[in-house]
Design a protein around this nucleic acid. Sequence first.
RNA 1: GCCCGCUUGGUGGAAUUGGUAGACACACAGGACUUAAAAUCCUGAGGCCGCAAGGCCGUGCCGGUUCGAGUCCGGCAGCGGGUACCA
Length: 854
Amino acid sequence: MVERYNAKHVEAKWQAEWDTQGVFRSQADETRPSYYVLEMFPYPSGRIHMGHVRVYTLGDLLARYRRARGFDVLHPMGWDAFGMPAENAAMEQGVHPAEWTWSNIATMRGQLQSMGLSYDWDREVATCSPDYYRHEQKMFLDMFAEDLAYRREAWVNWDPVDNTVLANEQVIDGRGWRSGALVERRLLPQWMFRITNFADDLLESLESLERWPDSVRVMQANWIGRSHGATIRFRLAGRDDRLEVFTTRPDTIFGASFCAVAANHPLASELAKSDPELTAFIAECNRTGTSEAALETAEKQGYATGLEAIHPFSDGVTLPIYVANFVLMEYGTGAIFGVPAHDQRDLDFARKYDLPVRIVVRPRDAGDDFSVADEAFTDDGLLVNSDFLNGLTVENAKKTVAERLDASGDGEAKTTYRLRDWIVSRQRYWGCPIPVIHCDDCGIVPVPDEDLPVTLPEDVSFDEPGNPLERHEAWKTVPCPACGKSATRDTDTFDTFVDSSWYFARFACPNADVPLEPDAMKRWLPVDQYVGGIEHAILHLLYSRFFMRALRQCGYVDFDEPFSGLLTQGMVCHETYQDGDGNWLFPEQIERRDDGTVRRLDDGSDVQIGRSEKMSKSRRNVVDPADMIDQYGADTARLFMLSDSPPERDLEWTEGGIEGAWRYVQRLWRMVCEPSIELPPAGQPIPSGIGGAALDLRKATHKTIAAVSDDIERFRFNRAVARIRELSNTIGDFAPGDAADASALREALESLVILIGPMMPHLAEELWRRLGFRDFLCNQPWPNADPSLITEDNVVIAVQVNGKKRATVEIAVDSDQAAVEATALAEPNVIASIAGKPVRKVIVVPNRIVNVVV
RNA sequence: GCCCGCUUGGUGGAAUUGGUAGACACACAGGACUUAAAAUCCUGAGGCCGCAAGGCCGUGCCGGUUCGAGUCCGGCAGCGGGUACCA
């Protein structure tokens, strides 16, 4: 009997062999087409988690599959190494962010390497390394020169006790997470990227991203949010200036019953100077965080300013102007007119402040008495009560209003976007320094090229809140590059999304002196297949798309779209456990007893099992992949990640599932190492004229090859695994007798080993060797199915009567329809179901189904 | 709040993209092997009725289109992701 499969030993052995031979180094071999597989690089948080195991398993499968398909594959790995958690660690544990980060990288690199991933580790990059971020600084300066980067004031969350800027994540129920103080909004000068310059292109090019999920494309389109409407410049009663308002519904202008401006609108600020009540109201509005969810879910409130806007088309009609917390300064002009009958939010506001609700659009089939109660009418219809618009459709009325506004000079048609320019500066230490110097005389002065990189100072402390760079006088104070006078460095650092907006391009030339080498860009970019979590559907992917356009404008690249193909994978979930006091428990703190109860291991008390959720530290429903790999080996972990759930869906981690995968690994091992008949030597051709059970096995083998290839191409890895298991079952049931059988069995086993290669590379490599081959399995070409072995002569089809299945019949493939119909109608159960009623119609779908309608 | 998903046996999922619902697994039950356990192998199984043949019901809920709906359309509910300073 063969020894049990020793995953630990075998995996270490092949990892060393692959490494020594450098098999996964990308060669830039011009004789083969290139293929770039990339998984989203990890934030080095400490240890790898199951989500990492999942995404890197998926990417590795694709990379190995493409290699086998003859491509020169680029498959790199690096670290998204800047970010807040390192600073939090510094504050909580007193460890320097750099030390914390680099030590995490070392740990996680080792853990990834234990998974046997086919990375070209020579290309590893870390964004916190000056070798990386110096190029980012150069790119930024070029973007600044192109006017793609600029500086202006923007709102941030301000903690008035800690005197520091807070991330949205650090605002909990409107309070700072450390100080507990009520958060305020505050204006600070910020660096911005002009992503809105590319709004139309970013929107329209989504169409070309055919290998992206539709959901992601729709999300991005909605995020950009292009809408066509009009601006109207209302005259103000008793004043000479005007109020500029944007609306997507100019057609409803005769239904307007109020105007509202944002709390931070200049008009509101001006009026507040002489109105203490308004000042208080604005302060109240500013006491929410800056997040959209916080603003949108806050109770809608308004303050009547007493000012009135004059209707552009109705003589003598004026609209009261409110300051309202739901009007966003960042969208449109920061001012709106409200039409309660045709906008739900305006209707709620009108009911609250007792404003008129005037119907100006009526459904086509409604009468004069049409009215709205609690629900605004927002669909298409015909204009009423609207002077020169009466009888027009919504679309025509929009056009007509725009024309009138244009003619009178009171406004014009206008396109706006929900998309806002990207604020890239952060008032934090652990990020890429923004390479500019502020001089009292010269203003903003870029750091000269020869002084790059601007590196982070190491001697900083985190014992008080705020940005250590701002307190670091020695680092901050520099002579102005232009005039030589004493000046100060910009103490802001970049949003980490900037780092991740171009890393994929740097992987093509990780050691180049220039940021991006043209030849390398030509060879490898764009990324052929990108794999990552759906949570990045908007920000990271949109920023990267913008960044490539900006880099193109600066002359770095000659493509726009960074990722041709995108696979978004779901999360890894696990059930949750709580003890009687509601404390969350780790899976290793509980036990399942034979009597069916679940108890705490330490004190035996009852444990409540909660529903399955995304693995998270806060819920403690985490399983450390390192433990799993240690116990079962990487291949078992990888197989489990691929087995049951399709990649886009969430995956439920279960102990049973991992054990099932482990048993299958052992079964494959026995199946190949202990065949039930002696196999012919490696490389011997299959004898011709094989029939009987051996032919059936060959057919099963070739069908599996075809199906698994197709499943992998379509990212249906769970199905590919099921097909492979089916072939194993077939092989297990096969009772070989003669040389032809042995030959068919050998072909089946070899195919099986090649097919599992991208999934369980160590096991496959070992089995390949045991089958008598001397070269690497990972260098073997992918097999092709023999077309003559994957067709069937007969097919079983269902026969329905009135849509209910009554029988199945076996017929020859592509049988004549009349013959199929006759066979179906002859079935006793079909005859019984028809029960003598006249047959009205018989529908025959070739090779599928027959439906008899009576 | 808004945008995008998801919802199928005890469980994860499959279903040739409108054509036989439940492939392949996990868990479970019974059996074989074993002194015993583990491992392995075999068998069973959506629910209800029936000895069986077979019948009825069944893909979150309500409605629609169709010869035929898990799949398409309208509405609703629950769960998840994103919401611009978490990454």
